[in-house]
Design a protein around this nucleic acid. Sequence first.
DNA 1: GCCAACGTTGGC
DNA 2: GCCAACGTTGGC
Length: 139
Amino acid sequence: MAYWLVKSEPDAFSWDEQVANGVEPWTGVRNHQAKKNLASMKVGDKAFFYHSNVQRAIVGVVEIVREAYPDPTAESGQWVCVDVKTVEAVPLPVTLATIKQTPELEDMALIRQSRLSVCAVSAEHWRILSRMGGLKTPA
DNA sequence: GCCAACGTTGGC
DNA sequence: GCCAACGTTGGC
């Protein structure tokens, strides 16, 4: 099982909407590296849900429930999306500022490539972030 | 609101 | 195929 981090601007699509919807197609990715990550996702993989721009924090956990298929919002058909299911909220949102202050996390793709909207997360980083976020069941 | 990083476009 | 111009993203 792999771990990921997906970004969304709360103004466009927020964690509250994700919770309300339960299962949501993760569409709109228009970056080749992010697309590659989407295409690598497997059912059962987990991802942190990150609020970019306004809040800049990890606020929730989602699970991949459908692997990459053509993004219906892309006319060309050359982009893909996955379906993600709400798992749980992060009790203590982990802010970008905190992540940057944590030496063990400084080589995360999230930090190194701030514009990448779908990032891989290592198992170790996932464990650290889960603990920081106050999650009871760090995978 | 500004700016850095980065992707894309188009002229040559 | 190079590179300048421009647009977008996201942090501050």
